[in-house]
């Protein structure tokens, strides 16, 4: 698979995984002696739970300030090496019942090489990544889905697939460039992230402001290949759940368009042991009924 592209729905289903990253579990105590990578590692620390469920919504504002809201339930089971995630949209009615499933098996070096070798063959490529599905109730169909550009918008929000995608930590080099700024009452580290390889990111560089007292990104600015600021992220309402810190409101603003999207997390549960049959293409149609009560 082209490294400049990510799997459309895999990213989609891992969107909330990134949100979970924002809730990532680290020790609460700030450690000012950390270097930039250490700081980011703490932000992107692993969630050790067997499964994770949350209810959230995206509220998308157009340039006139009118908004539309999409509510969804996110479920994950398994470890990052063998992980299955579901996103079931619950509102509005136009998208109610749409379910996205991603079955992720983290590639080892060996199967990555095999996949790269077979990248030209869709059969092999499908086999390597035939693990993203979408269920649409209007057609009552489950189908596998294909790639999207990393810079494409995620389901019409101001987040791009790259913004919400996985593997962010390894794909960038980090430099701590300040610690004097204070945001929403939190002292912050200002970190500059630049892509390890040109072309792997839509961005030339990103500035992060990470709270010094809790491991959460409070603010970020994203700069495109020409060095223009294209997006601004602002996270608020920090909460700790099951030892994991995170923001309950995250706003992403697109500078040029004047549009913005607010992600609001309304409830988080760990280790509820959902029915694993739901995490199969055959079980997707049942997801909404099962997840609705959770």
């Amino acid at each position: 698979m082209n490294k400049n592209e990510s799997r459309f729905w895999r990213k989609m289903t891992t969107a909330s995984l990134s949100l979970a990253f924002l809730l990532s579990s680290v020790t609460a105590k700030a450690q000012t002696s950390l270097d930039a990578r250490n700081i980011m590692e703490r932000v992107y620390g692993q969630d050790t739970s067997h499964d994770f469920t949350m209810k959230a919504d995206f509220e998308v504002y157009d340039r006139q300030g009118q908004s539309t809201k999409k509510e969804f339930t996110y479920m994950r089971i398994g470890t990052p090496e063998d992980q299955k995630t579901l996103v079931a949209f619950t509102a509005p009615k136009e998208i109610r019942g749409v379910v996205l499933l991603s079955i992720n098996q983290q590639r080892t070096a060996a199967n990555q090489a095999a996949a790269n070798q077979a990248a030209a063959n869709q059969a092999a490529a499908n086999q390597a990544a035939a693990s993203q599905y979408v269920y649409t109730p209007a057609t009552e169909r489950v189908r596998s889905v294909v790639q999207q550009e990393r810079s494409a918008r995620f389901i019409g929000t101001d987040f791009t697939f790259e913004d919400i995608g996985e593997g962010v930590l390894e794909e960038f080099n980090y430099k701590r460039i300040g610690d004097a700024d204070s945001i929403d009452g939190h002292k912050t580290y200002k970190i500059e992230a630049t892509p390890v390889e040109q072309g792997r990111s839509q961005y030339k560089y990103i500035y992060y402001w990470v709270a010094q007292d809790v491991p959460v990104i409070l603010f970020a600015e994203f700069y495109d290949a020409q060095g223009h600021k294209v997006r601004v992220l602002h996270a608020t309402t920090l909460k700790r759940e099951n030892g994991v810190w995170g923001a309950r409101h995250t706003e992403m603003r697109t500078v040029a368009d004047g549009t913005r999207t607010v992600l609001t997390i309304n409830g988080v549960k760990f280790n509820t042991k959902p029915d694993e049959k739901l995490f199969t293409p055959q079980g997707m149609a049942e997801v909404l009924g099962n997840s609705a009560g959770k």
Binding site: F89, V98, A138, R153, I155, G156
Partner: peptide, 14 residues
């Protein structure tokens, strides 16, 4: 416009 106004709605509604 932003490509498809809302890709999710586009897919979800027949």
């Amino acid at each position: 416009q932003t490509q498809v106004a809302d890709p999710l709605t586009y897919l979800a509604e027949a």
